[in-house]
Structure formats: structure tokens, C-alpha cells
Simulated scan of single mutants.
Amino acid sequence: MLKAVLFDLDGTLLDTAADFARVLNSLLAEHQRPLQDYQAVRECVSSGARAVLALGFELAPESAEFAALLEEFLDRYAASLSEQTTLFPGMDQQLRNLEERGIAWGIVTNKPSRFTEPLLRQLQLDKRCATTICPDHVNNRKPHPEPIYLACKNLDIRPAEAVYVGDHRRDIDAGRNAGMKTIACRYGYIPSGDNIADWQADAIIDHAEQLEAALLRF
């Protein structure tokens, strides 16, 4: 019996790309650099803030200027996490459906708790979410299964009693490595040229509204 659904955060549960693009472009404008197209930013959000910053400034993360720019970028992002961030269309109803069925839902993300926890509070999701696992809660981040194992421990369930939902290959790898069924989100932040069918998820959904039907397959 399905007892829980675990979600990746950026690009799966929440549409955060507009805030990343906004913060990046504010920093680029201040440094008199060309602004970045929203779609280009969207495609690299799942790879984290370093990838977004590298896109805008065309700098390698090991370059001398990168660390200071990253700190400024993260500070700006932390100060305005949810100006444009929302649940993906249809996702709130999907969460309510799970809650009505008595199925817990949680988050397993590579986004640090410094950003994840206040963001969930601002969107009034923190009380609804049964567990939230960030990389600073574990020794190994996704695609290692440790974060998923910790989420299952917090929920007092076995991995086989849960499904992991994500929009990146490492999400699907993490779920499979933990021994649970997986759902890949084609609506998420998938880089052009990445074939979602190659990830070997147990199901693929094109819209959040399709989640309930996909879960019924397991």
C-alpha cells in the first residue's frame, strides 16, 4: 500500500525559476553584463545556484571571482525567495488529494535548508509537509539514497511503501537506488537534449494534474 509520496522541490513541486532569473538578472545588471533569457535560466535551475550563476557570468566555479559573486547571489535570493515562486499548476489539488487519502507527502531536495525551510513557511507548506530533507541533513546528497532513507525513517515507512517524484535524472536515480518507484516530471526544469525516457522512471507525467492517475498504477 502506498503510504507516502516524496517530491523533489525546484522544478517538481515548486516553480522557482522566475525568482532565480530575477535575482540573476539583477546581479548581472549591476555588473553591466547582458541579461539572461528566462528559458536558459529555467533549464539549469535543477543543477543549483552555481550553475545559474555560471550561466550568467560565464565563469568556472573554481575561478577567483566566483565565490564572492555566489555569496552575493545567494544573499539576494535568500532575501526574496518567493516573490514569483508558486506551486506548479494543479499541484495544490494533488497535495490535497493525498492529504484526504491519508497519504503523507514530503520533500527530498538538494536545496539547502537555509532556503528550503523559509520558502516553505512563506508559501504556507511547512505545516502540511510531513518531512523535509535537505543536503545539510545528510552526509550524501542525491543521487545517493541516503536522503530518501532518512525521509522514510522520519515517516516510519519502508522505501517500497513510497514513490519519489522528480524532474532530474538524479532524482530518478536516487529513488531507484533507494528501492522505490519513481515518477519523472516532463513539465520540470529539463535541459534541452536530455531525453526523459532514458531515465528509466516507472512513470512520466506531463502535468502535475496527472500525478494521481500515475500513483494509481503502483
Score class of each variant (00 low, 15 high):
residue 114 R to Q: 14
residue 83 E to I: 01
residue 88 F to Y: 15
residue 96 R to N: 07
residue 82 S to C: 14
residue 112 P to M: 06
residue 94 Q to T: 07
residue 108 V to C: 11
residue 82 S to V: 12
residue 122 Q to A: 11
residue 83 E to S: 13
residue 89 P to R: 11
residue 92 D to C: 03
residue 80 S to I: 00
residue 117 E to K: 15
residue 121 R to P: 02
residue 120 L to E: 05
residue 89 P to A: 10
residue 92 D to N: 10
residue 84 Q to F: 08
residue 93 Q to H: 09
residue 109 T to L: 07
residue 124 Q to S: 15
residue 105 W to N: 00
residue 121 R to G: 04
residue 88 F to Q: 06
residue 99 E to T: 14
residue 81 L to Y: 05
residue 114 R to G: 02
residue 100 E to A: 14
residue 94 Q to A: 12
residue 114 R to P: 04
residue 116 T to L: 09
residue 81 L to M: 04
residue 123 L to Y: 06
residue 95 L to E: 07
residue 99 E to A: 15
residue 88 F to I: 03
residue 83 E to F: 01
residue 80 S to L: 00
residue 81 L to R: 01
residue 94 Q to V: 12
residue 84 Q to C: 14
residue 121 R to E: 14
residue 84 Q to H: 14
residue 91 M to G: 02
residue 98 L to N: 02
residue 79 A to E: 13
residue 97 N to Y: 10
residue 83 E to V: 09
residue 91 M to Q: 07
residue 80 S to C: 11
residue 115 F to G: 07
residue 113 S to N: 02
residue 105 W to Y: 13
residue 122 Q to D: 15
residue 89 P to S: 10
residue 117 E to D: 13
residue 94 Q to E: 12
residue 98 L to V: 05
residue 95 L to Y: 01
residue 86 T to G: 04
residue 95 L to P: 06
residue 99 E to G: 00
residue 80 S to Q: 14
residue 116 T to G: 06
residue 112 P to R: 10
residue 80 S to F: 00
residue 95 L to I: 05
residue 108 V to R: 05
residue 108 V to I: 13
residue 79 A to C: 00
residue 86 T to W: 01
residue 113 S to Q: 11
residue 110 N to I: 05
residue 86 T to A: 13
residue 100 E to N: 13
residue 93 Q to F: 00
residue 91 M to P: 05
residue 103 I to H: 09
residue 87 L to H: 06
residue 87 L to S: 02
residue 89 P to C: 04
residue 109 T to D: 02
residue 92 D to E: 15
residue 108 V to N: 07
residue 124 Q to T: 13
residue 110 N to T: 12
residue 112 P to W: 08
residue 118 P to L: 01
residue 89 P to M: 07
residue 98 L to M: 10
residue 82 S to L: 08
residue 102 G to I: 02
residue 96 R to C: 02
residue 81 L to A: 01
residue 106 G to M: 06
residue 117 E to C: 11
residue 101 R to V: 02
residue 83 E to Q: 14
residue 106 G to L: 06
residue 108 V to K: 03
residue 85 T to Y: 07
residue 111 K to G: 02
residue 115 F to P: 01
residue 113 S to V: 09
residue 116 T to H: 09
residue 81 L to H: 04
residue 82 S to M: 09
residue 90 G to I: 05
residue 82 S to Q: 12
residue 88 F to C: 00
residue 112 P to I: 09
residue 124 Q to E: 15
residue 92 D to L: 09
residue 84 Q to N: 13
residue 123 L to R: 10
residue 85 T to W: 05
residue 105 W to T: 01
residue 98 L to I: 06
residue 114 R to C: 05
residue 87 L to W: 04
residue 92 D to T: 11
residue 102 G to K: 03
residue 108 V to Y: 02
residue 98 L to A: 11
residue 96 R to Q: 14
residue 103 I to N: 08
residue 80 S to W: 02
residue 107 I to H: 03
residue 104 A to I: 00
residue 91 M to R: 04
residue 101 R to K: 15
residue 100 E to Y: 08
residue 105 W to M: 11
residue 111 K to H: 13
residue 117 E to A: 13
residue 86 T to Y: 08
residue 107 I to V: 15
residue 119 L to G: 03
residue 111 K to M: 11
residue 87 L to P: 03
residue 107 I to R: 01
residue 82 S to H: 11
residue 107 I to G: 02
residue 79 A to S: 14
residue 106 G to H: 03
residue 96 R to G: 00
residue 112 P to G: 09
residue 82 S to A: 12
residue 96 R to M: 12
residue 87 L to F: 03
residue 111 K to C: 06
residue 87 L to C: 14
residue 124 Q to P: 00
residue 91 M to N: 07
